[in-house]
């Protein structure tokens, strides 16, 4: 009886210890992601290989579906389930393509993670600095980290010098839809074209 009880306590202790070991603060999470991204970009390999590795990193660390929903703005409430499913697929392809293309331009970025600011149980903003080089000045980058599941934090936005990429993306998408008198299909076609090229 006592042995059983001791075993149960031991198992609970091990599970608790394991959970603690894997639960990262948002700041640690961003440090890990930026360090991985930097290692990928530093490698002397083909651009295509770099892109594949960056895509894999993005799939693990970015809430692509969440960003997709945010980006759709008011239209997410008025499109059909089927359209939403199609949009999710198209947005994932679009996001990963543009993400890897944007990042692969940097050869050896040095990002110093500075601090984190807790907003609420769902969000923490992590602040960092992209160190200046010969071509560009120092850039302040804030990361909106979605922490609803603290054991699996995910990036939802990059705020560069106070400018939100997710918001820019949303306004861009909404501009395409508004320009087509609210026809979401036009956005889908634009995304298909982008993903194909």
């Amino acid at each position: 009886m006592l042995k059983n009880f001791t075993n149960k306590i031991l198992i609970i202790f091990i599970i608790f210890s394991l959970n603690s070991a894997y639960a990262q603060t948002p700041e640690e999470f961003i440090k890990e992601v930026t360090s991985k991204a930097s290692s990928i970009l530093k490698q002397n390999i083909e651009k295509n290989q770099k892109s594949q590795q960056l895509i894999s990193l993005a799939k693990d660390s970015v809430d692509i579906n969440g960003i997709g929903m945010y980006t759709l703005g008011k239209y997410k409430k008025i499109i059909s389930e089927e359209q939403l499913r199609e949009y999710t697929v198209l947005f994932n392809q679009y996001f990963l393509k543009s993400f890897s293309s944007r990042l692969s331009e940097y050869s050896d970025p040095k990002i110093n993670v500075i601090s984190q600011k807790y907003l609420n149980e769902k969000y923490t903003i992590v602040s960092s600095i992209l160190v200046a080089d010969d071509k560009r000045p120092e850039i302040k980058i804030d990361w909106r980290v979605y922490t609803k599941n603290p054991k699996n934090p995910l990036i939802r936005d990059l705020i560069i010098e106070g400018l939100s990429l997710a918001r820019t993306q949303r306004e861009e998408f909404n501009s395409v839809i508004n320009g087509a008198d609210g026809e979401v299909e036009v956005l889908f076609q634009t995304l298909r074209n982008f993903n194909k090229n």
Binding site: S101, T168, E172, S175, V176, L187
Partner: peptide
Amino acid sequence: QNSIDFYASVKSL
């Protein structure tokens, strides 16, 4: 390169 509507992106930024 990565914009589907560059005008809207610049406006937003």
